[in-house]
Nucleic acid binder design. Structure first.
Lengths: 254, 254
DNA sequence: CGTTTTATTGAATGACGTCAATCACTGTGG
DNA sequence: CCACAGTGATTGACGTCATTCAATAAAACG
């Protein structure tokens, strides 16, 4: 299986053929293109769909009144944006395209139809939402307790691991690497640092040999070393197939 | 209605009598006492219940390997700790009692039984989880983008508003006030500041006349002024009864 | 090719942390 | 009743990490 959503949900449980078919119906739903840099949805809007990232990267963000911006999450291909968002009247944050972006817009009816007869799929989606909440908490830990280089190193580790789970990382003799289309200015808005300090910190990590980052490609020669230097413990990503006791009989891995 | 859980869910939708009865069955479930300062559940444990705070205050926290601690959320009476936590194999953070604490331990079976025939109640609980996620994001905004005094002021505003929605705040001629059993050391772990700096910042807020804080009681003479000084926009708390179109016929307010 | 975005560098400043000591308050045992 | 320890709040001096401002270099883009 190559679909990022299926790869991701497969970290929780082996889906049956009909689960997978239902998940793919979400995938195909009314896709929308968003240009890099512009907003897909905006704070204050009434949510009309559950969004699924089909291609490209997006971010959730919020502005403070005086213009300061904080990016509170990254959305990668296969990521689903708030299963229960349609309960709310207004969005409390915006979502912007980081790169050129493809979004599936899933209506409540489409969601109900896809999950109605597939409790295993619904559980996988709920698990995914829990993991997303854990990531949010971990970003809080970073902002509150990690130093600049730990924050940035942690962002690299987490993003690399997320890319790996959706089959978008490659491993070579010099470690793993993945796409990383995040400018230093955006990294600043994520980590709560200034762009200048991000720049200096990235350079320091490079000089220590912990990462290579050029041309929107992130390479990590020794992931364990970077994780350790960044105080990153991957437990919160819950990558160990916690729902395996619910595996479908016909759930295969290929 | 006086029950904090019902008051809180009532911010979303008017519950029917049978919704309320079902919610109260969660409330009564096998209550557990935890002494102030000790852990209710610990990172790495297998979750066995959904926890509901019946009385007292708790906090979610995580330690980094070198001992730094971050508190990533406060749990007040009526708060429910992760509707879907039982999907996970391991907890990724701990929960400690801030004050002497009463916890209802709700099993999956009890949860299913309570929500099975009450879709309105289930929606209210899901709405609550969304609001909780929004609070988590807002704490990230604080840590990344707000100054020390804005962070602390924001914590005061949010906590006061949460206490107000559960009927635990009182209003007088000199503004509103509520219990606030949080030591400055704990405020430091919440805001990512040092305890010393929290102390100085609280004093500054006092001298500006924005808050009074003594003997575990927080008083806010002018909430609008404090909110404005802290760049606090209450939108993310979603306090405006967003599910009112789903109100039960027999849902009364008393 | 110019134009814009992104990355990089230096110097000065400032917000916040650390260390260390003191003070107030509480509860405890003698 | 008082000595004592323990917790939480407070203060001062000093150090440091990160910000800001400003300028430049290097890429990316049309």
């Amino acid at each position: 299986m190559q679909n990022p959503l299926l790869l991701r949900l497969g970290r929780y449980v082996r889906l049956s053929a009909s689960d997978r078919a239902a998940a793919l119906r979400l995938w195909g739903q009314r896709p929308l293109r968003v240009r890099a840099g512009s907003d897909a949805v905006r704070e204050g809007d009434a949510p009309r769909h559950v969004l699924v990232v089909v291609g490209g990267w997006a971010c959730r963000y919020r502005h403070l009144e005086d213009g300061r911006r904080h990016v509170m999450g990254l959305l990668l291909p296969g990521d689903l944006c708030d299963l229960d968002v349609l309960l709310m009247h207004k969005l409390d944050h915006s979502v912007a395209a980081v790169t050129s972006l493809g979004l599936a817009q899933v209506s409540q009816a489409a969601l109900d139809e896809a999950t109605g007869g597939q409790p295993r799929l619904l559980r996988a989606l709920r698990w995914d939402a829990q993991v997303r909440a854990a990531m949010q908490r971990e970003w809080s830990v970073s902002l509150a307790s990690r130093t600049a280089s730990e924050r940035i190193g942690h962002l690299f580790c987490e993003t690399y691991l997320r890319m790996e789970t959706i089959g978008r990382a490659s491993k070579g003799p010099r470690g793993g690497s993945c796409e990383f289309p995040i400018t230093q200015a955006l990294m600043a808005d994520i980590t709560g640092l200034s762009a200048v300090h991000v720049n200096r910190t990235v350079q320091a990590l490079r000089e220590e040999g912990l990462v290579r980052l050029h041309d929107r490609v992130l390479a990590i020669p020794d992931l364990a070393a970077l994780m350790s230097a960044s105080l990153c413990d991957a437990g919160y990503l819950h990558l160990d197939r916690e729902g395996r006791h619910l595996d479908a009989e016909d759930g295969t891995d290929e």
